[in-house]
Amino acid sequence: MTMQRMALFRLQRKYAPYLFVTPFIVLFLLFGVYPLIKSLVLATYITSGPKSHLFVGLENFRFLLSDPDFHKAVRNTTVFAFFSVFLQLPLSLGLALLLNRELVKGRDFFRFSFFSPHLVGQVFVAVLFSVIFIPQFGLLNRVLHAVTGLALDTKWLTNPSLVMPALILTSLWMYVGFNMIYFLAALQAVDRELYDAAQVDGASAFQQFLHVTIPGIRPVAVFVMVLSTIGSFQLFELPYVMLGNSSGPEGAGLTVVMYLYNNGFVSGDLGYASAIGWSLALGVLLISLVQMRFTGTWKREE
């Protein structure tokens, strides 16, 4: 080999790795980092369409604090997230416990049935449920009327106080089975011998659940809880489609992301939308941290 070729070879060895990771870095900078920074910058402007913008500093954030619509969106989304976590997760766990028993016949069938709503996507589910919720002829009212005698013209999607329950019900249908799969996997990973030991130690079925099952599935439970919280705060398509591309009667279905969408893409103020987006991100981060703190995820195992 000549000296020149040797030098070229060395040069290649040195720089080739960087060449290989370049496509990723470029894409990541372009579509990950740049929008993030751009949106943070945007949040300090008032904009009207892409061309006209006015620097206002932290004014957008200050306005958020006193914006009644934003407050409503936060309140709605929080209520939704709260019920999502505290209704969905126990139901998911309960179903998983049921399906984890060997006595249950047709476990695979049920597992798939409960999971399948998640496969069709939010928009489809929203369309499906807006039909189910129709007064007079909707499936839900028919069943409720037959069982409890509830009025047939209960207006789920037009009565402001019923919109949120309807949304929560829909998301239950959609996510209970999905979260159940996580719990089922976690339950199956708990060492069977621990149940034997607990039985010999004198633990009742409930005590076994408390001292063996719960500690055994805790990491997964925390993971599912944090994930559903984050997911709930991103609620958008479900109410948007169910309520006919609107925020519902008296804004009862207005969520944070929907408010962001309305401001950014309907009113055209991308600056204010960015401020909403960043507030949402920080809020969700904060809640997740609190959740992890209180469930002891960070406690050091000595």
Binding site: D191, E193, L194, A197, Q199, V200, G202, V212, P215
Partner: peptide, 20 residues
């Protein structure tokens, strides 16, 4: 009689200690 009332104690192959 359930295990807890048989007055027996058992040592398991994988120890079965409660990890938490």
């Amino acid at each position: 009689v359930p295990p807890k009332d048989r007055d027996i104690a058992m040592v398991f192959q994988n120890y079965a200690l409660y990890p938490h």
